[in-house]
Design a binder for these strands. Structure first.
Lengths: 155, 155
DNA sequence: GTAATTCCTAAACCTAACTTTAGCTCAAGA
DNA sequence: TCTTGAGCTAAAGTTAGGTTTAGGAATTAC
């Protein structure tokens, strides 16, 4: 199989707009796996241009490199990914994306209640509701917007 | 004016769910401005509970501390913020939030074209379009998804 | 064939957003 | 009063996602 010489890291950098150092960093993070030529230099598959572009796009959507590595795991290791491989990974990616957007929209809508009440703090504020709070990412404030159910004015 | 003794950093931490060290860090970043008591300990306004909660919420939406400081600048310095003050800042915040969500949705819709074509790379992919690319945050890939208009198969 | 690029590694450095540590002071309760 | 928890500062450490630097080695261009 005349797998060809592969492309150099510099060429890959030119084609993707990434810095050479970033590509080496991605390799260290297991996002791309070049081989080496006789002189020890990295050689990449032409398909890695697409792979790295996918990484850049996913980053724009706020996914971390480990999350992106997870997406990329579904791509075949031995051969060049086909249209179908990419369609599959894209669909998976898309569903995570939808989730992310929905979370933001829900938080925004909750915030709307706060703007309506004009104080960001009353019990009728939805961000204040435990169930809504549970949906938030990370730890979040224990008592959102500064009030505990019982009191605003204890010691 | 019996401005009261103010609240301690530990109490503020308990009420917001933030670490004491985080609150001190926010002070260093100019997000909150406590005064000191006779013994040199920080004292906060009760209204700072709300202020810090706002910071936490804005962070969940992905805003940086400098951006959040910008939002908070519209709050009055001398007096405790009123309902109206908070309504104003919330509206401002909301519009930035809308922008952020729109950007994500637009990117997602562009990605849909790619999923449709199944390859994440053809010229009919919208992420490939210079105008759409211009709308992206950050530098972004120069030739998105791995193809230049002219060629997939040059050197 | 030689000069200019490009590439290599390892290690240090960078920013954001914090946390941890060390050593010391203040305040609150029995 | 005295002990213990809470607070103070300054500096160093941490994670993510890289970049920069230093000192060589391989490639490419003329």
């Amino acid at each position: 199989m005349h797998q060809s010489a592969g492309i150099s890291i510099g060429y890959l950098a030119d084609r993707t707009g990434l810095a050479v150092s970033a590509i080496r960093y991605y390799e260290a993070q297991g996002l791309v796996e070049p081989w080496r030529n006789a002189g020890g230099q990295r050689r990449f598959h032409r398909a890695d241009i697409r792979r790295l572009s996918f990484i850049m796009i996913a980053q724009q959507f706020g996914f971390s490199l480990p999350e992106i590595r997870g997406f990329l795991k579904s791509l075949p290791g031995g051969r060049t990914p086909t249209k179908e491989d990419w369609a599959c990974i894209s669909a998976n990616f898309r569903s995570h994306l939808d989730q992310r957007i929905e979370t933001l929209v829900r938080l925004r809508d909750n915030l709307d209640g706060c703007i309506g009440c004009g104080c960001l703090s009353l019990p009728n504020c939805k961000l204040y509701n435990p169930e809504d709070r549970a949906a938030q990412k990370g730890q979040g404030p224990r008592y959102l917007m500064g009030d505990r159910p019982e009191a605003e004015n204890d010691p």
